[in-house]
Design a protein around this nucleic acid. Structure first.
Lengths: 225, 225
DNA sequence: ATAATATGATAGTAAAGCTATTATTTTTGC
DNA sequence: GCAAAAATAATAGCTTTACTATCATATTAT
C-alpha cells in the first residue's frame, strides 16, 4: 500500500497543491472529505468554507494546502488517473499478445469501480463517481497558460498515450490511435454519465456495459484491413 | 431566414428563459453579446453585470430574460443543437441509401463551423467555439430534478436519437446505436477541444479532420458482420 | 525550553449572484 | 395625440463566494 501510494503521488504535478496533502492528517482529511462532499453536493456548491465546517477545521488552513477548489479537483483527477494507470499497467503486465493486452487495458480503463478497493483515506468508488460527473469541469482552459495546463494533465496524457500505443501494436496501419484512445477514455466517462442521467442516449444498462461497447468498437475498428 | 428562426425557436424549452430573447432588441443583444463574451473570457468569468456594461444595459434587465447564466448557456446550447439538427435534416433529406445518408449526417454533425453562415444576430462560428469549450459545463446535474433536466436537453436528445436511427438503418444488428451516436456527438466536440488545447491526445490536425476519423470509426464498426 | 512550524480564530475585502423598489422610457390601443 | 400598460434603467441592498491578513495557540523538533 505504501509503495502504491508513493508511485501514485509521484506523477502528480506539485503545482497542483501548496502543501502536499499526503504529508499530514489534515491534508488527508481534506482530500477524503472533499471527495465525499463533491459527490454529495456537486462541485459548484462545494466550498472550502463548508469543507472546513465538515472536518472541523479552518477555512484558512485548507487554503494552505490548495490554492482553490479548482486545483483541488485537478489534484483529485490526477490521483484518479494515476491510480487507473497503475491498475492498468499491473493488469496488462506480462501479456504478450497485443490483442489480449489491449483488451485487458480497455477492460480496466472502462470499468466502473465497484469494489471498495480503498487505498487508505481515498474512497475510489466515490472518486470514480465524481470523475464521471465533474471531470469535464476540470478542463478549464481560458484561465491558464499552455505550459501550466500541460503540467496539470501529465498523468492523463500519459495514460491516453499508453492506450494509443497498445492500439498501434494491434494495428500498425490504423491512422487514428490517439484519437481512438482519447475517445475511449472520455467516452467511457460519458457513457456512465448518460446511463445515470440520460439513459435514453445510451445502450448501456444493467446488461450492457461500457466495457462491452468499447471493446466491440475498438476491435471492429482495428481489425486488420 | 424567418422560417428557419421559427423552427429553431420551436424546439427550445420555454423554461430556459423567462422572457423570449427573440421577442425584443434587448433580448437579441443579450444573446449576441453573451456568445462573444463567453468566447472571450470563458463561461466562469462571464457575468450578467459585465454583459450589462458591454451592451450598455442594466444587469436587472438581463435577469428579466434569463434566470441566471447557466440557463443562458443551456439556451445557447439548445439553439446550437437545433441549428445543427436543421442543417442535418436538410442535408440528408432525399438521400435514400442509408449509408450515404448516415455519411452525410456525420459530416454535418462533426464538421466545425467554418463559414459565417450567420443567422441574424447569432454568429454560429463563435457559438460553435463556445460549445466546444463550454458545453460540458451545461451538464450540471445535482441542481435539478430529472424531469426538468429532460426538458432542457430535448433538442440534443432528439438529435442523438436521429443519428442513432440512421445507424440502425445501416446495420439492424448493431447492438449499440445510441451509444455510438452519443459517442460521435460528444466525441466530435472533444476532438476539437483536444486539437486546440492538447494536440498530442488527438490525431486530428490540419490534414486529418474529426469528420474523417469518425466516419472511419462508424463505418468500420457498422460494416455488416 | 525554545524556536520553528502547523493549525485555529477572527476579521475583512472584492466580486458574484442575485432581489426589490422606484423612476423613466417606449409601446400600444383607443 | 393621449393615457395606460409594458419594458427598461437606476439605485440600493443582501447573501454568498473566494479569498487575504493578522494574530493567537497548539504541536513538534532541536
Amino acid at each position: 500500500m505504501e509503495l502504491l501510494m508513493q508511485s501514485l503521488k509521484m506523477g502528480i504535478n506539485s503545482e497542483l497543491y501548496i502543501k502536499d496533502p499526503e504529508s499530514s492528517d489534515l491534508g488527508k482529511k481534506i482530500v477524503e472529505h472533499s471527495i465525499s462532499m463533491i459527490d454529495e453536493m456537486g462541485f459548484e456548491r462545494f466550498t472550502f468554507k463548508k469543507l472546513g465546517l465538515r472536518i472541523k477545521s479552518n477555512e484558512s488552513s485548507i487554503y494552505r494546502y490548495f490554492e482553490n477548489k479548482h486545483k483541488l479537483l485537478l489534484y483529485l483527477a490526477s490521483w484518479y488517473w494515476g491510480w487507473l494507470e497503475y491498475r492498468m499497467v499491473f493488469a496488462t503486465n506480462g501479456i504478450s499478445d497485443p490483442r489480449e493486452k489491449l483488451k485487458k487495458a480497455i477492460e480496466v480503463l472502462t470499468q466502473n469501480v465497484q469494489e471498495d478497493s480503498s487505498v487508505s483515506h481515498i474512497n475510489e468508488v466515490v472518486l470514480n463517481r465524481i470523475i464521471v460527473d465533474e471531470y469535464s469541469k476540470s478542463l478549464l482552459v481560458k484561465e491558464v497558460g499552455k505550459e501550466k495546463k500541460d503540467g496539470y494533465f501529465i498523468v492523463y496524457k500519459r495514460l491516453v498515450g499508453r492506450l494509443g500505443k497498445m492500439m498501434e501494436e494491434v494495428d500498425k496501419d490504423y491512422r487514428y490511435p490517439n484519437s481512438l484512445a482519447s475517445t475511449v477514455m472520455e467516452g467511457a466517462l460519458y457513457q456512465y454519465f448518460l446511463r445515470e442521467h440520460f439513459p435514453s442516449l445510451t445502450d448501456c444498462d444493467k446488461n450492457i456495459t461500457p466495457t462491452e461497447y468499447f471493446t466491440d468498437l475498438v476491435f471492429s475498428t482495428l481489425k486488420k484491413a
